[in-house]
Nucleic acid binder design. Structure first.
Lengths: 349, 349
DNA sequence: GAGGCGCACGAGAGCGCTCTCACCACGCGG
DNA sequence: CCGCGTGGTGAGAGCGCTCTCGTGCGCCTC
């Protein structure tokens, strides 16, 4: 099993095909400007020798790696327990694969890891980085900026540093939240509560802001803080029921939280949606669909966000399009994108 | 933001420190056999110039990358929806990080992807590979073997090829299943059903075998095939209720499946565990704990499996231990490991 | 038929690093 | 006093690839 078989080099292929290294290189990289006869001969030699180019050598001269880092800055177990990341990763993976780029996953937990990530990015192993789930006090963006690696963020980074050139992909969290709350109001609900997400993330803050946009003079007791988890949702819901037993609607910061809230409402003997209408956020399947009752929620296309992040990054690396040097992009920094959300009506509101 | 700043090279550092490239290299790689004065001078120069070694150049000569590929051969959405992978990945990530190795994630969906993965591994981008979730007909192991990359599999590969040198980490699926079924029998249950996992994976087959070990002459109608998903569990449970309304216990191939079964049992008006006892597999938290009723299940330490996979791989690359050339390993191929399982009693059985 | 042009290919110079080996200056024993 | 080891350093040869240039040849043009 252990290799030992010394990989054939370009040189070897050249010798076998009776051409120069340069020609083999040309063939391997597309074969433009080489006569068909030679192309064929080289191909054959490559085949016979089982030649595979040595990436390290190639990168050394091209200064490209065809790899991007995906940095997930989630300190908790949540990282994957939350399907959110999974979906984004899938989107990213698909897009990168389609452009023959590899994905280097960097999971960080804790401060030392940040330094490690910074070093890695600065080390020039990858052509760019996709960064997720930033928290307000996160030192990562600065490290990355210093590393000088083209980067696209997932979610608007809530970060006070130099914003120039910062590119991100986000959902219209605030607009989606407004839609949700308006929908609840449209149902005639008046005591509309909000269970927030982790407020050190901009998505949670934005959704809260959207709630406030509609509920201008909301009873502050109608806002309960949670953290995007089912357990947090339960806790917050209990709190709400205690302080405001007359609550008749809940807009939860995400579906996970909503599912926790549903459980508590059920326990308390309240009917959903008759007594309390509930709306989530994400439209996380199958969670939302199979909730009891099925959850009305604000959908965001998470996989598409991932795909878009990758696409923006690749474009800024000048490889998004077959040959992106035509007119528009010219490898210029693309700008951030905010994706729309849609309200999905099910039984819970 | 866009780089442009040409990275300083070893040469530059050497010039600034007034030493040779070789000396700088020595310092950068540990600094053995260099006088402290020079070490200090070089360190200073590195600092001032912000020098970071070029990995491509280094790999070119050392033939090491300090990176391993993690191949997830799951064609379906399950890849991450199932916390199983998430946990393994965490374990892997931790272990790799601890040894300064990077993780290159390769998600495959479909046949073409296999070729891609094969090419990638053969390309010598990584020092080794960790491969998951193989299905019986999967061409991947063979491709990998041919690529000559040291590999550790997650779960026993069910594969008819050359088994020599195949290293894997697995749980004692069969033993765990036996424990579960024996437990049910110990409760006095006699009509014990089994809902299988996806039978193209060895873990599902092994659990079925464990079930059969105990239920030697089981009514074949007590075995319903599913696929490790909640939806599959529901389907299988409905089937079981139809064919064997007298079923009084169910051993499901994993917790996800069990949760589906629980739902159907509840719908059918049966009480768990009074009418039907249920046992799952995995002890996936919080799913198992928060199920209604909390799920009795067979625990396997998934994160540890991941960690172990990484450790075995690193050891076979001769970097597991500070200097693994002591007595035992000597970089020799380590052997496979099968981890024990434990039955966790909760309310459902 | 001579000159020019362009196309296909080869020669060779690096990319930034590691590593072997030769070298030099000591200090020591014979 | 000479030779020999020894530990610290530098010179230089690659690692396997890409890419620029230069060269030779066929073809077109006049």
């Amino acid at each position: 099993m252990t290799d030992t078989a010394p990989r054939p080099t370009l040189e070897a292929v050249a010798a076998r095909a009776g051409v120069s290294r340069a020609t083999v290189s040309r063939v391997v990289n597309g074969g433009d400007g080489v006569r068909d006869v030679l192309v064929e001969r080289v191909r054959k030699a490559v085949e016979e020798l089982g030649y595979v180019p040595n990436q390290a050598a190639r990168s050394l001269v091209t200064r490209r790696h065809d790899a991007v880092a995906v940095v997930v800055a989630e300190p908790e177990t949540r990282v994957f327990a939350d399907p959110f990341f999974a979906l984004q990763l899938r989107g990213i993976s698909k897009e990168l694969t389609a452009h023959d780029n590899q994905m280097v996953l960097l999971l960080t937990e804790g401060r030392d890891d940040h330094a490690r990530v910074g070093r890695y990015l600065a080390g020039g192993h990858v052509d760019g980085a996709l960064v997720f789930s930033l928290h307000l006090d996160d030192p990562l963006p600065e490290l990355i900026q210093r590393a000088g690696v083209p980067t696209v963020f997932g979610g608007r980074p809530g970060w006070r540093g130099d914003r120039r050139g910062v590119v991100y992909v986000d959902s219209d969290n605030r607009g989606g939240a407004r839609d949700a709350v308006r929908h609840l109001a449209g149902l005639g609900r008046t005591r509309i509560a909000h269970i927030t997400g982790a407020l050190d993330q901009t998505s949670a803050v934005d959704r809260l802001d959207g709630y406030r946009d509609v509920m201008v003079d909301a009873d502050p007791r109608l806002i309960a803080e949670a953290d995007f988890t089912p357990a947090g949702g339960e806790r917050a819901m209990r709190e709400l029921l205690e302080h405001c037993p007359d609550v008749d609607a809940v807009f939860a910061a995400n579906d996970l939280t909503a599912s926790g809230a549903l459980r508590v409402l059920r326990e308390s003997g309240r009917r959903v949606p008759e007594d309390v209408a509930v709306i989530g956020f994400d439209d996380m399947l199958p969670l939302a669909e199979q909730a009891d009752p099925p959850l009305t929620t604000v959908r965001q296309d998470i996989e598409e966000m991932g795909r878009l992040m990758a696409r923006l990054l690749l474009r800024s690396l000048d490889r998004g399009t077959p040959h992106g040097d035509g007119a528009q992009g010219v490898g210029g920094t693309p700008s951030s994108v905010v994706l729309p959300t849609t309200l999905v009506r099910r039984a819970s509101a």
